[in-house]
C-alpha cells in the first residue's frame, strides 16, 4: 500500500477518534480522502534521495535493451524529459551532449528517457548528435517514468526530472523542474561532486 493511502487512513482514523459528530460531518470526512487522492494523482512526486532506483530494461535501439543494473559500480544520471524535437535551439539533451566530457570525469553514464518511440529517438539522437543512450519508455507507455514519480498523467509525457544514482543503485539526488523550465546541467554536476566527496569520506 502506498504511503499516501496509509497516511490518509491513519489521519482519517485519528479524526474519527477525536470528533464523534453528526452524519453530515461524517460524510464530509469520508469524502476528504477521495479529494486528496485526486490531487495526489495529478501531482508528480519524484523518488527522493536514499531510495533504491527501480531497475528497468528499455530499448535504446530496435534490437538493443539497456538496463539500469548494467551500470552497477558507476554513477548513473537519469534524465526524464517530455518529448523529442522540442522547438528550441538547445534543448536540455543537446546541452548534456556538450557537457558529456564533464560527466565522464566522474565516470558517470547518462541515460535519457521519454515516452517517444525508438524510431523517433534514433532520428532525434542523430539530428542533435547525442552521445548517450536515449531510451524509449514506450510500451507500456510511461511505466518506468511512473515508477520514478516522473510521469504526467494528464498530458501523457514524462516530467522533466533528473536523478543521480550511485554505484550501488541508490538515488542520491533528484530534481523535478517546474513546467517549461530546462534545468541545465549545474545540479547534476554538483550532485556528482557531492557523491565523490561522500565516497571519499566513506573510504577514509
Amino acid at each position: 500500500m502506498s504511503p499516501l493511502k496509509t497516511s490518509l487512513m491513519q489521519t482519517g482514523k485519528m479524526r474519527r477518534m477525536r470528533k464523534p459528530e453528526n452524519r453530515v460531518a461524517a460524510r464530509s470526512r469520508r469524502q476528504q480522502p477521495l479529494k486528496t487522492k485526486k490531487i495526489a494523482k495529478k501531482v508528480d512526486s519524484v523518488l527522493g534521495p536514499g531510495k533504491t532506483a527501480p531497475n528497468f530494461s528499455l530499448n535504446s535501439t530496435p534490437d538493443q535493451k539497456v538496463s539500469l543494473n548494467d551500470f552497477r559500480g558507476q554513477p548513473v544520471i537519469l534524465a526524464f524529459y517530455p518529448a523529442d524535437w522540442s522547438p528550441v535551439c538547445t534543448d536540455q539533451l543537446s546541452l548534456y551532449a556538450m557537457v558529456m566530457p564533464e560527466f565522464k570525469k566522474f565516470n558517470a553514464e547518462l541515460l535519457a528517457i521519454s515516452v517517444d518511440n525508438i524510431w523517433s529517438h534514433l532520428a532525434f539522437a542523430k539530428d542533435r548528435k547525442l552521445n548517450f543512450p536515449v531510451l524509449a519508455d514506450f510500451e507500456p507507455k510511461g511505466s518506468i517514468s511512473k515508477k520514478y514519480g516522473a510521469y504526467k498523467e494528464r498530458i501523457g509525457e514524462s516530467a522533466r526530472a533528473l536523478f543521480v544514482i550511485d554505484d550501488k543503485g541508490i538515488i542520491r539526488w533528484s530534481h523535478l523542474s517546474p513546467d517549461g523550465i530546462n534545468p541545465g546541467a549545474d545540479g547534476i554536476l554538483s550532485a556528482l561532486e557531492n557523491l565523490n566527496k561522500a565516497q571519499s569520506v566513506e573510504k577514509s
Binding site: 504511503p3 499516501l4 497516511s7 490518509l8 489521519t11 486528496t36 495526489a40 501531482v43 508528480d44 512526486s45 519524484v46 523518488l47 527522493g48 514519480g149 516530467a159 533528484s174 523535478l176 517546474p178 513546467d179
Partner: peptide, 11 residues
C-alpha cells in the same frame, strides 16, 4: 500530512 509523508510535489 502530505508534506511530511511524501516527497516534494511539483506544486
Amino acid at each position: 500530512t502530505r508534506k511530511t509523508l511524501l516527497e516534494p510535489t511539483s506544486r
